[in-house]
Simulated scan of single mutants.
Amino acid sequence: MAVTPFADRFETIASARSPLCVGIDPAPETLAAWNLPYSAEGVREFGLRMVDALGDRAGVFKPQIAFFERFGWQGMKAVAEVIAHIRSAGALALADVKRMDIGHTLEAYAGAWIGADAGIPADAITLGAYMGSGSLTPVIKRAVEHGAGLFVVVRSSNPDGIALQNARHEDERTVADALADDLTAFNAPHLGKYGIGPCGAVIGATLDDAEHVLERLPTSLILAPGIGAQGATMADLKARFGKAAARRTLPAVSRQIAHAGNSANALADITARLIDEAHGLRG
């Protein structure tokens, strides 16, 4: 049976709702502000409340899996419930797992998160590729088979990543540029209705030099963390990324929304404003 690629589903929901990607990051300080315990039950309750408040507005939710995994099997059970709740609300679930390995190990990670038979089925996941872009082959294969999306870290906004990502190959391409070229090559046989493939990229919204690497990613969706608490705005993102890339971008906002408080009305109010701003990326 044919599957609809993640990029095609994202385009539909971004037009109907918004391209905004709402982060579900139940950090200790956030749970304390919500009067929730720092426990598996606390992270579960936080995630479910976020989806209850915003599930009919946001197109994409991005649970940060580390905050759930912290509590072992109970935390993983909690995130499974949260992801199922996201999908039942008609939104897309992007599991922020940043897995990175080779061979059968990465294949097992892919099976844990991608496909109806996965341990915790999500619509998309994040990955690292600094064990070589060829290491991504098993997860790309599974993503194509199951219509999932992949977001590979290419240029992060943390200062410690700059030296590695901007190191140069013998052909003078930076490591980030070469990875971007590989993602574009991986996408080429698998372009969907809108000319986008399964391999997206993570590019920090706070970067002032992102446009160059984005030019090498014409067939990728872009996940852009850094809006809000890290200092970037939607207007900054559009200026830094350029019109073409901005239209393919999922602007990710976590703390700015969660810190509005645990009132459904407060969450809805700030999200409505961010949704309006996010629509501007596609204009």
Rank of each mutant, 00 (worst) to 15 (best):
residue 3 V to I: 11
residue 8 D to V: 12
residue 9 R to P: 04
residue 10 F to D: 00
residue 14 A to H: 02
residue 16 A to P: 06
residue 19 P to V: 03
residue 21 C to M: 12
residue 21 C to N: 08
residue 22 V to N: 03
residue 26 P to R: 07
residue 26 P to K: 06
residue 27 A to K: 15
residue 28 P to K: 08
residue 28 P to Q: 12
residue 34 W to C: 11
residue 35 N to M: 04
residue 36 L to R: 06
residue 38 Y to G: 03
residue 39 S to G: 04
residue 40 A to S: 13
residue 41 E to M: 11
residue 42 G to V: 06
residue 45 E to M: 12
residue 45 E to F: 02
residue 47 G to C: 05
residue 48 L to I: 08
residue 51 V to C: 02
residue 53 A to K: 02
residue 56 D to V: 10
residue 60 V to N: 01
residue 62 K to C: 02
residue 62 K to G: 00
residue 63 P to N: 08
residue 63 P to T: 08
residue 64 Q to R: 09
residue 67 F to G: 01
residue 69 E to K: 08
residue 70 R to M: 13
residue 76 M to N: 13
residue 79 V to A: 03
residue 80 A to Q: 13
residue 83 I to A: 01
residue 83 I to H: 00
residue 84 A to I: 11
residue 85 H to L: 04
residue 85 H to V: 05
residue 90 G to R: 10
residue 90 G to E: 09
residue 91 A to N: 09
residue 94 L to H: 01
residue 95 A to K: 00
residue 96 D to P: 08
residue 98 K to F: 08
residue 102 I to H: 02
residue 103 G to I: 14
residue 103 G to H: 12
residue 104 H to Y: 07
residue 105 T to S: 15
residue 107 E to W: 07
residue 109 Y to W: 06
residue 110 A to F: 09
residue 112 A to E: 04
residue 114 I to G: 04
residue 115 G to K: 11
residue 116 A to Y: 00
residue 122 A to D: 07
residue 122 A to C: 15
residue 123 D to I: 10
residue 123 D to Q: 14
residue 126 T to L: 08
residue 127 L to N: 04
residue 127 L to A: 11
residue 129 A to Y: 08
residue 130 Y to W: 15
residue 131 M to P: 01
residue 134 G to W: 05
residue 134 G to R: 11
residue 139 V to N: 03
residue 140 I to F: 03
residue 142 R to S: 01
residue 142 R to F: 01
residue 143 A to S: 11
residue 143 A to Y: 01
residue 146 H to Y: 06
residue 147 G to Y: 03
residue 148 A to R: 00
residue 149 G to S: 05
residue 149 G to H: 02
residue 150 L to F: 06
residue 150 L to Y: 04
residue 153 V to M: 14
residue 153 V to A: 05
residue 156 S to E: 07
residue 158 N to K: 13
residue 158 N to M: 14
residue 163 A to L: 10
residue 163 A to W: 00
residue 167 A to Y: 10
residue 168 R to V: 15
residue 169 H to P: 09
residue 171 D to Q: 09
residue 171 D to S: 12
residue 171 D to N: 15
residue 172 E to S: 15
residue 178 A to T: 14
residue 180 A to E: 02
residue 183 L to I: 13
residue 183 L to P: 05
residue 187 N to D: 12
residue 191 L to W: 01
residue 192 G to W: 01
residue 193 K to Y: 01
residue 197 G to Y: 03
residue 198 P to V: 10
residue 198 P to H: 05
residue 198 P to T: 08
residue 198 P to G: 06
residue 202 V to C: 03
residue 203 I to R: 00
residue 205 A to L: 04
residue 209 D to K: 09
residue 214 L to T: 05
residue 217 L to W: 10
residue 218 P to D: 08
residue 219 T to P: 09
residue 219 T to R: 04
residue 227 I to F: 05
residue 227 I to K: 03
residue 227 I to A: 04
residue 232 A to W: 00
residue 236 D to I: 14
residue 236 D to A: 12
residue 240 R to H: 13
residue 242 G to T: 15
residue 243 K to N: 12
residue 244 A to P: 03
residue 245 A to C: 10
residue 245 A to M: 09
residue 245 A to N: 03
residue 247 R to G: 09
residue 249 T to G: 01
residue 251 P to G: 06
residue 258 A to E: 02
residue 263 S to E: 15
residue 268 A to Q: 14
residue 268 A to H: 09
residue 272 A to R: 10
residue 273 R to Y: 04
residue 274 L to S: 06
residue 275 I to R: 04
residue 275 I to K: 02
residue 276 D to M: 07
residue 277 E to T: 12
residue 282 R to A: 07
